[in-house]
Every structure is written in C-alpha cells, then in structure tokens.
Design a protein around this nucleic acid. Structure first.
Length: 309
DNA sequence: AAGGATTCCAACCGCGACCAT
DNA sequence: CATGGTCGCGGTTGGAATCCT
C-alpha cells in the first residue's frame, strides 16, 4: 500500500535546481517503521521543536510539519490510542459545548489524547448521530438530545463501571468531602473523577482546576484531586440509579456499550423517537430545564446538578 | 463469497500567530 | 515597520478496514 504513496512532491520539471530536487524528493503518505525510528531517535536526542531542522538532520525526506504531526499524534510517549471511554466522551461533549471546535484545548484535558483524535471522534461519532437524527450538530434539537439523553447515559455508564470495579474489589471507593471543592467541580468529579484528577495533575493551576467547570480558582480543590477518585455521592448515585431503572422500565436503555464503543448505538433512535412522541418527561426522561444553561448549549454541571426525580 | 457502501482515522493542507532579524 | 521562517490549529482528504446486501 505504501507504493501508492511513495510518490514524490512535486512532479519533477525538466530543469530543476538543488532546492527543487530536494523538494521533489519529499515523501508523503503513511510513515514506515524506519522513519518512525529515525524520528523518535532524533527527538529523543534533541528534544521537540525545530522540526524542519530535525527532519533534515535525521535524514528524513519529510517536511518539518509532517514530522511534527507524526511525533505529536503517534510517536510521542504517553499517546493513548483506541476507543474513548465514557468519561472521555462525557468530557468531550461538555468541553465542546463550552469551547466549540477548539480541539487542541479540549484534548489538553484528556490525558494522552490528541486534538486529531478528539476531532475525529467528534466528526465520526457525534456528527454521525446528528445525521441519524436528521439535524445539525449545532441545532437546538441535537443539543437537547445530547444533554437529555446522551450525557445522562454516559454518567449512568460511568457509575455502573465504577460500581462494578468496586464490587470486584478493584477500587477503594469513598465519598468526597462535601466542603472540599466547588460544587460544580464536585459534580464533574463525581462523574469523571479520573479525568478531573488528571487535569489537576497535569496542570495544577486555576485554569486547569477549572478545566471542566470554568470556575476561576479554589485552593482546596487544586490541592487534592485524588480525593475524588471513584467517588460515588449517595444522592448522585440514587439519581442515576433512578435513571437506569426508568430506562429499563421503558425498555430502551441497553447498557451493552463497551468502554470504547458508542453509548447510543443500540437505543438512540428508539429513545429519541419515544421522547419526541411523548415528551421527555412521559418517556421516563428527566426534565433538565431546557434552555437554561447560559452560554453553553449543554453542560455536564447542569446534567449532574438537576434535582432528583 | 463477492462487491458495493459506509466508517474510521492517519495524514495533508491552508491559514494565522508568533518571533527573530 | 517589513519580511521570512517556524509552529500550531482546524478543516479536509483519501485509503484501509469493516459492514451490509
């Protein structure tokens, strides 16, 4: 398959100078293992940056731009690949509602994930759902569906996973201190403690602490992200347990999605159809107070801070 | 089993910001 | 201030993989 991409840029001309010859030999397309090894070795020795120089010094017939992209998205240590977990999906939905297509900014709060991966997730999964619903991702309709169906399902899934882990003795679950963090952060941490914790670890600044909530600062919050690990506040747990029960009663909420899968692959359409026909409340869906989320179309905080039902 | 359709994602491109000269 | 080089971001493309008929 590489052969097709081994073509060079641009096509040569009758009389080319040295620069043009060099340009004509630039490779494009998929990277080979040898190229990866060359680039990795060079970056390990000389650090990141000055990509054009590194490309030449390493003997790579690639542009600096291409080298940078390959390193950041694939070769860099710590890059995570594979499907997004429910926590990551939840965070992407929430952060996108705040920042829009700021992929790099969103990815910075998902440890090990690149902007390219987040962007691809959005385009392939989220936009796919919007298409299935016959609406645009920017439409009010889609935002409501995400906020009232998708995000609660993700939270439900997260708690189910946490419970399973706790039951297996794999976690030392404990409730967080009610006074130790801003309310909004508590809510987010309850749903995605590892993500929030990682935000704090990676960038223990007020900005990092507010990675999801947008809150400005909180010393107690910044100081102890670990306290949120596998948290399961009783009220929250009761709330989402109720959600699960209601979904089961309505026969539309399978929990068969895997960590890397898509939460709504199986029940999305029928749930939505039911919601459209009966209205969210009669369909067993909680009333989240549509249209009262301020600047954000949907918000993880809002989802989690809704009164129990 | 075969072939067409769809999905996924690695890689490229264009553009703007930033910085050094 | 102008210019050129570098870098980073977001949008787009196209081939491989997977699904569907």
């Amino acid at each position: 398959m590489d052969a097709l991409w081994m073509s060079t840029l641009p096509s040569s001309t009758a009389a080319v100078g040295e620069d043009e010859t060099a340009a004509a030999e630039l490779r494009r397309g998929p990277w080979t293992a040898e190229e990866d090894a060359l680039l990795s070795g060079h970056v390990a020795a000389h650090g990141e940056g000055r990509w054009n120089e590194q490309a030449v010094a390493a003997g790579l017939r690639r542009t600096g731009k291409s080298c940078r992209l390959r390193w950041l998205n694939y070769l860099r240590p710590g890059v995570r690949r594979g499907g997004f977990t429910p926590r990551e999906q939840l965070l992407i939905l929430d952060l996108h509602s705040r920042w829009g297509n700021r992929w790099s900014k969103i990815a910075s709060h998902l440890p090990g994930r690149t902007d390219n991966e987040v962007k691809n997730y959005w385009r392939t999964r989220v936009q796919k759902h919007a298409k299935q619903l016959g609406c645009d991702v920017g439409s009010r309709r889609f935002h409501d569906v995400v906020r009232n169906l998708w995000m609660p399902r993700l939270v439900e899934r997260i708690h189910a996973d946490d419970s399973a882990a706790a039951a297996a003795g794999a976690a030392t679950s404990r409730y967080y201190s009610a006074s130790s963090a801003p309310a909004a952060c508590q809510s987010v941490a309850a749903a995605a403690p590892d993500i929030v914790g990682n935000c704090g670890v990676r960038a223990p600044s007020p900005d990092a602490a507010s990675c999801v909530t947008g809150s400005s600062s909180s010393s107690s919050w910044e100081a102890s992200p670990a306290q949120f690990e596998t948290s399961s506040p009783p009220a929250m747990a009761a709330g989402w347990a109720a959600t699960a029960e209601q979904c089961q009663q309505n026969g539309g909420c399978s929990s068969s999605a895997t960590s890397g899968g898509d939460m709504f692959d199986e029940s999305w359409s029928e749930l939505l159809a039911r919601a459209n026909h009966d209205g969210a409340e009669s369909a067993g869906l909680p009333d989240f107070g549509l249209g009262e989320t301020g600047d954000n179309w949907w918000s993880l905080e809002d989802i989690l801070q809704q009164p129990l039902y």
